[in-house]
């Protein structure tokens, strides 16, 4: 290989990966439109696009269906998928664990516990802040779970397999705590908690969408600022530290970000599994591990999977919307097991 061709060849690979990233964007746009168009009543494409540009072109009923039901639902699928995909990718890098994700390490379950606490004891807070107490509690418990995982890994010098086992233990602990909260909850609160445990986009509101959007807008640039440090982390902790990267601080900052992303996603959409695991793996296969492309790719892949799952949740049983957490779990478990088999040499 000649002197010039090595750099040129790499730039070709990089351009090809950029093209794949663009295809992901297009696929997500298409999936989003299909998600909005499908449901108990189908929007023809022309009518849908007209309704999006000019809401007054639709009759009152269709306008309500499009703007108050379909759009919040479809946008929430994209945002929550992106948040979970990004969170999973960052976790896998800083914990050097291909099986790490908010769901597999109990972070989502912890957030669901925080959310259920906020629901049950929400009456204690002023009405004006009650919309924010659920995501805030979800974030706090998710962050606490991240810190527990980190502390256990450090204390016992745990390898990848042990971290997953700690995560499974946390899932059981938080499941038990959620059951305890359910046990003492009033009937109304109990119904809401059950919604969280199944994972559903059905209650998405524009206000919630604004909160998730803000979180993504704040978190994503911070993630992208650290892409070179995160890329260097893939060469091992010792190598990263010798490059001047404050490994411990980076890990703490990233886990804080993961807690915010997972907390807000779980607070509004419930416990949706496997997106944070599968999204990054798809991105890794398609785009490699250069984090300049891997991080946005993971967010896009997560968004695309959840958007497709949203379509599937409406299409599997005509007239019925299955909670999306059930769909992602049914698709995610075989994928998760495939990953374990493929990654067994690293565990």
């Amino acid at each position: 290989m000649s002197e010039a061709s090595l750099g040129q060849s790499y730039r070709q690979i990089y351009r090809r990966r950029l093209a794949v990233l663009s295809v992901l964007v297009l696929a997500l746009g298409l999936s989003f439109l299909v998600d909005v168009a499908t449901g108990p009543s189908i929007f023809p494409l022309g009518e849908l696009l007209r309704g999006l540009v000019d809401p007054s072109s639709l009759d009152q009923a269709k306008s309500v269906i499009l703007w108050d039901v379909r759009l919040p639902y479809a946008i929430m699928a994209v945002l929550v998928g992106a948040a979970l995909g990004l969170a999973g990718a960052e976790m896998q890098t800083v914990l050097n664990n291909p099986l790490a994700s908010p769901f597999t390490l109990g972070i989502s379950e912890a957030a669901a516990f925080g959310a259920s606490l906020a629901i049950v004891f929400g009456v204690l807070f002023p009405v004006a802040i009650q919309t924010y107490t659920v995501p805030l509690f979800a974030f706090l418990t998710a962050f606490a779970a991240c810190m527990i995982i980190l502390a256990l890994s450090r204390t016992f010098g745990a390898g990848a397999h042990a971290v997953i086992l700690f995560g499974i233990a946390l899932v059981f602990v938080f499941k038990a705590l959620i059951s305890l909260v359910q046990f003492v909850a009033e009937a109304d609160a109990l119904q809401q908690i059950v919604f969280w445990t199944m994972g559903s986009l059905g209650r998405a509101t524009w206000e919630q969408l604004a909160i998730v959007t803000c979180v993504l807008i704040v978190c994503f640039p911070f993630s992208m600022r650290a892409v070179w440090m995160m890329t260097a982390m893939r060469s091992g902790e010792a190598q990263a530290a010798s490059l001047g990267i404050p490994v411990e601080r980076l890990r703490l900052v990233v886990l804080f970000r993961v807690s915010v992303l997972a907390g807000v996603a779980v607070a509004f959409a419930g416990s949706i599994g496997f997106i944070g695991l599968v999204g990054p793996h798809i991105a890794r296969l398609a785009l490699g591990e250069d984090h300049r492309l891997y991080l946005p790719g993971s967010a896009l892949a997560g968004a695309l999977i959840l958007s497709l799952a949203s379509i599937a949740s409406k299409a599997l049983i005509p007239g019925v919307v299955i909670p999306i957490g059930i769909v992602t779990a049914l698709v995610g478990v075989p994928l998760f097991m495939t990953l374990i088999v493929r990654q067994r040499h690293r565990l």
Binding site: N96, T231, R234, S235, G236, E289, D290, H345
Partner: peptide, 17 residues
Amino acid sequence: SIPAGSGLLAYESVLGA
């Protein structure tokens, strides 16, 4: 020891450093 599991291209790992 250099981690065996990195999916980075060799070129990327050196470029990153």
